[in-house]
């Protein structure tokens, strides 16, 4: 179902963004900022980017001469790598900056960092930060586009986009599906972005977690809330598992991994309650044997590696959508 547009002109100067209406957002800070048609446009743009990474010369240089800074205040392998590859395949100069939050607390504030980087005149800054709202604060202090790569427990918009693209590719549609998200709902930015995005596309959303991992008011954000995993999975088209920060969780959040796995770990028996063709997703990195049975994670229902591939396409699409609109006269 990949669209042919732009996929065969990788070395030409043609811009895929020309095939889409202008994307009228300065930044990508949260799914909450996006209208339904903007979400669909980003998914379509990402779809068009998929072939670029599948061809031999993985190059679609629409961002030649542009500078992208990946500013990560929290360690991340896959998200940072995905943004780096996305930028490089579009021809941007990509710089990675990993800032340990401890060195920030030693003196330089986030605003100082933003001002300093801004003076280097980047075209886009991709930011991950441990505090909710931090990326938005930074965006107010710079003159370039800013992409939120995760801010605390607030949002992770490109994750929700890549999840949606993966679902669309496997199910042929998004609207009308039932998506069950299971795990540490309280501390997950992935959940918030996904509930917003899927909600905007008329998905029946469910969250499943023990009560102490459900944040107050979640019943207003998800269509249904379950504490029993089998009930929550019944009839689901998509099962999305979340990573449990079990090193941190043990003792206060959950008593033990074995109890958590017994009641909230995805195994074949629990998955059998979902639809027979249900797909299994995970934003990674996975804890096999904590929230998911390795046999499921690596089994036929799993689309986890597809998510990683769609991640690159989504990030290429977002970069491509944000940058031309800012630099045309």
């Amino acid at each position: 179902m990949a669209q042919a547009r732009a996929s065969t002109t990788s070395t030409s100067s043609a811009s895929s963004s020309g095939d889409f209406p202008p994307f009228n957002q300065r930044h990508l800070l949260s799914i909450a900022d996006l209208q339904q048609h903007e979400i669909i446009q980003l998914l379509d743009r990402a779809e068009a980017m998929v072939p670029v990474s599948r061809q031999e010369r993985k190059s679609h240089p629409t961002l030649t001469g542009k500078t992208q800074i990946n500013l990560f205040f929290e360690p991340s392998t896959r998200t940072q790598g995905s943004f780096e590859i996305a930028g490089k395949r579009l021809g941007a100069l990509v710089m990675n900056m990993s800032v340990k939050s401890s060195s920030v607390s030693k003196g330089e504030t986030l605003v100082d960092t933003a001002t300093t980087l801004n003076a280097m005149r980047p075209d886009v800054i991709v930011v991950r930060h441990g505090a909710a709202g931090a990326v938005e604060l930074l965006s107010q202090k710079v003159g370039c586009a800013v992409i939120n790569a995760g801010d605390g427990a607030h949002e992770h918009p490109t994750q929700a986009l890549l999840d949606a693209l993966t679902i669309r590719n496997h199910k042929g549609r998004i609207s009308g599906l039932t998506v069950a998200i299971c795990g540490d709902i309280a501390n997950s930015r992935v959940v918030r972005s996904n509930l917003l995005l899927l909600g905007a596309l008329n998905v029946r959303t469910r969250v499943i977690a023990p009560r102490n991992l459900l944040p107050v008011g979640i019943e207003h954000l998800a269509s249904e809330v379950f504490t029993d995993m089998r009930e929550g999975l019944a009839g689901a088209d998509v099962v999305m598992m979340l990573r449990l920060q079990h090193e941190r969780a043990q003792g206060r959040m959950i008593p033990s991994v074995r109890e958590y796995y017994r009641f909230y770990g995805l195994d074949a028996e629990k998955l059998s309650y979902a639809k027979p063709d249900a797909i299994v997703m995970h934003p990674g990195p996975m804890n096999r044997g904590v929230e998911i049975d390795p046999a499921i994670a690596d089994g036929p229902a799993s689309v986890i590696t597809d998510q990683v591939e769609m991640g690159v396409a989504v990030r290429m699409a977002v970069l491509d959508a944000l940058l031309p609109s800012r630099n045309e006269p």
Binding site: G133, A153, R192, L221
Partner: peptide, 13 residues
């Protein structure tokens, strides 16, 4: 304050 609004903002209540 703990509540829906804090949950939406991703802030601890």
């Amino acid at each position: 304050n703990e509540g829906l609004f804090a949950t939406i903002l991703g802030l601890k209540g």
